[in-house]
């Protein structure tokens, strides 16, 4: 049979295109000891990704007028003033540029019913905007409160780790604009090694409170491809100390629900068959 070009073209729609070739996994290492709170990352991110402004709000929370990551803010600089010496350390400022954690096993990806959320060829967690239908399941799945749905276009948005820039071999906008190398981008294994050395170096200098958040997996949560060097407890930066993976409870949840459903069904069946004459 001789298929005409039009038929072939129609069939083409159903063919999956070749997926992009797997690349070395990349990520962010955000070293908060180097952050000076300039918010260049916030601005560069907004500019490159053409994200709208979030309005003009004074929060009164130090220099933080952004408050949190959102569908239109993918980098957020947190400011903590510890000037009265509580907690047993010298008066100090803590500043941290927060971002999507790009979890190795991401709850948002596991929750997404449409397959919009994927791991791309760089191992980054990515929302495919042409697929997302705004069901908002990822919003409640994320244990870090990163994902949100934009009320204007109705879709979920978060840091893409500058997928478009990476495709062209460029550094993500925030890392590129960071003047102190607080945000470092690169192959994630290299970053983890560099981060470990940095902690050792700080510890040797007497900064015993420095540690890595997310560089390795915990008992219940995967490692983060976008991890942090912190100087105080995670909760001080509004990060969960020991996040949990929602899917860990999936089997138990199904089991309990269906055991109840089957149990009530059997009870009802007994009621219906009773009193047979």
């Amino acid at each position: 049979m001789n298929a005409n070009p039009f038929t072939l073209e129609m069939l083409d729609v159903w063919k999956r295109p070749e997926p992009p070739k797997q690349q070395v996994e990349t990520g962010f290492f955000t070293d908060t000891t180097l952050c000076i709170g300039c918010k260049a990352c916030e601005v560069a991110c907004k500019q490159w990704n053409q994200l709208p402004g979030d309005g003009f709000h004074w929060t009164g929370n130090s220099y933080d007028n952004t408050s949190a990551l959102s569908a239109t803010t993918w980098r957020h600089v947190a400011f903590v003033e510890q000037m009265d010496g509580t907690g047993g350390h010298v008066p100090r400022w803590l500043m941290m540029s927060d971002v999507c954690k790009h979890c190795v096993q991401a709850p948002c990806q596991e929750a997404c019913p449409t397959g919009s959320l994927i791991y791309n060829e760089f191992g980054n967690v990515y929302v495919q905007q042409d697929i997302c239908n705004g069901c908002a399941y990822c919003v409640v799945a994320c244990p870090f409160g990163v994902l949100d749905r934009n009320h204007q276009d109705g879709k979920a948005h978060k840091c893409t780790l500058c997928y478009d820039r990476q495709k062209d071999g460029m550094t993500p906008a925030c890392a590129k604009s960071c003047p102190t190398a607080s945000i470092q981008f690169g192959p994630v294994e290299e970053l983890r090694e560099r981060a470990r050395k940095r902690v050792e170096e700080l510890q040797a200098r007497g900064e015993t409170d420095a540690y890595l958040y997310g560089a390795e997996a915990t008992e219940e949560y995967s490692a983060l491809n976008s991890f942090f060097l912190l100087k105080d407890k995670p909760t001080v930066y509004n990060l969960p100390e020991a996040p949990k993976r929602p899917v860990d409870n999936l089997k138990t949840n199904y089991l309990v629900s269906f055991a109840t459903a089957v149990g009530l069904t059997v009870l009802s069946a007994l009621c219906f068959s009773r009193g047979k004459k």
Partner: peptide
């Protein structure tokens, strides 16, 4: 589930 806690020594 020890999470990502600060080293004990620091606290």
């Amino acid at each position: 589930n020890r999470g990502w806690r600060q080293p004990e020594a620091a606290r």
